[in-house]
Design a protein around this nucleic acid. Sequence first.
RNA 1: GCGCCCGUAGCUCAGUUGGAUAGAGCGGCGGUUUCCUAAACCGCAGGCCACAGGUUCGAAUCCUGUCGGGCGCACCA
Length: 667
Amino acid sequence: MLPIEVTLRLRFTQAIAAAFGAEFSADPQIKSGDPKFADYQCNAAMGLSRLLSRPPREIAGKIVDHLSIDDMFDTPQIAGPGFINVRIKPGWLTGELQSLATNAGELARGGVDQVSVPQAVVVDYAGPNIAKEMHVGHLRSAIIGDSIARTLAFLGHVVIRQNHVGDFGTQFGMLIRHARDTAMQGTEPRITDLDAYYKQASQRDKSDPEFAIQARQAVVELQQGYPEAVRLWRWIRDESRRHCRELFAMLGVQLTDADERGESFYKDRLAAMVEHLKGALAFGGDGARVGMDKVFHPSDTSPRILAVEPAADSAQAKGALESVEAVDRILEAAAPLVVQKPFLAESEGALCVFLPGYVDKDKKPLPLIIRKSDGAFLYATTDLAALYFRVQEDKNTAEDKRPLDCNWHAHRIIYTTDSRQAQHFAMVFDTIRAARWDIHPQSGAAVKLEHAPFGSILGEDGKPFKTRSGESVKLRELLDEAVARAAKIVAEKSPHLSPEKQASIARAVGVGAVKYADLRQDRTGDYAFSWDRMLSFEGNTGPYLQYTYARTCSIFRKAAADQPAVPPSPAVGELRLEHPREIALGRRLCQFSGVVESAARDLKPHFICGFLYDLAGDFSGFWEACPVLRAPSEAARSSRLLLCRITQAVLAVGLRDLLGIEILDEM
RNA sequence: GCGCCCGUAGCUCAGUUGGAUAGAGCGGCGGUUUCCUAAACCGCAGGCCACAGGUUCGAAUCCUGUCGGGCGCACCA
């Protein structure tokens, strides 16, 4: 089903072009209107008034004269300064919904069409550091990323989920170093031990400087493939991976081992990638690089070299190298210290990318460090390598291709991480663009790189969500508590159900409540975690939507019981929208495809939540006002059953397929 | 200090990218059940959209400044 706004935008564009010429029809300003006035409105007349120097109401009149929408809408009304208000004809609505209800394939998709040109989209989410147990800090990334991935996949894109686990960083140096002393190699510790184990290592790292140095060294050894370090690392990683798998399953997050590609995967690519980057950036920074290498002295703690403008021509830079004094003169002439073009350089022993627009607290150029002074690589290096891998690399092995069986050449890459990493991703993206590694190898267009940031989880006191003792809450414990709280309520509300049934409802409701509470809010803001709010079972909550869905199912169970001879096939029959509640519900159902489209465009699952909540409200209103099984006539009964069927389908698609929340036919 | 994000009802949040009298839920007050799940529905009260300017037909939304909060700013991720 084509979103109504799309059709309307087209029709108004045509009308404006016909009335005033195509040059005025760029944006017809279609909005969904205040229900008091209109279903939709076109607000183009006011803006056109200035360009055409005619009164806006006159312009609105001309637009309406050229408009042909009477197949879908009643006669447009001009109101206020020049709003053009339109209302959908119930007759048109009926036709749309009728064809939706009777087409099984379309019904199963809630009327949402697949895109005509699918893209390869990488969604990078979850990404726990597997040196320790998953905690609440990983919750939002997993839930939000999963919903974004589901939504894009539902629309027909080729979604490549990537769980970019931290399995190769500095923490592993600590753990490996610690493992050497504790003789744990031969044992098979459980995951709960690993968390405590991490704490011990971390403690030693903080208090023992020698340990800390050796821990850094262990990272280098791991990254260079020393067998002893690698063996210890594998043991820790495998233990942790099992734990993550369980939690993803519990959460209903669609990540499998085939989607896991951690930092370690890129380890053999990093050195080559760095060399490759030197070549790619030499374009803008050759002269600077020559200057940097020579000018820098290890003893120089305030490297004025950063003042060098990369575009400074090589001859000048090379000539300057003949005397340190001459170099200094050039450098001083280059003040104030601003990076004009991206360039690569060594600074204080670390290999850095310098980019325009990034300064540190002393107003000095802020580097993106891609190789530490001790030779180790860091997350920026891995992120760059991963980006190259995802867009540019031709893949040879099945291992490299998974989870697909072909090259990726991604068109769009989405990172669902904490908003605190915004600057990091901005720098990584800028670096990729400077190297022109964002140019799609087939289409030649720039790949869309997006950071979809989210805020922190706060406790009810407004401070970061922690346990009473100040530690981060373990994800497993959080989910267990959600299920336990839900179980209590289920036992109270639905004592007639079997214990097994109650337990499975409690699982779905508890986990669903946690997920929905997170998804319903705009991800960019911080989010206040509250058991009472998410499990209150009232208002805009997961349980309320699950309950609404369960009620739609209940109708069909009853309908079947009423007429045992007739198989329940409510997807046939004639739809008629008569009661205002029926019309309101029908109108809402037709908006679904447009909402899904916006949610995918802006990567905002809360658009979907808001819609489903409104839909649930419309359905409840309909439920109260329009008896279905006891409808006054057989015609009304079968028509209303059709409405229930569509509502049921849309709720199922929204909750299960898009948000990743389990649906229940009975609660 | 510099940069990014934020400030909307007592609380938690929407506000479709500049449109009409700013909307929900919770909490508060009041109502609805011989009837398909009352985990529901209906109604009432509650606002200087932090503050001050500016831009224009029109601002919660855009620009500037102020106040208040969060986060980030060189070898952690």
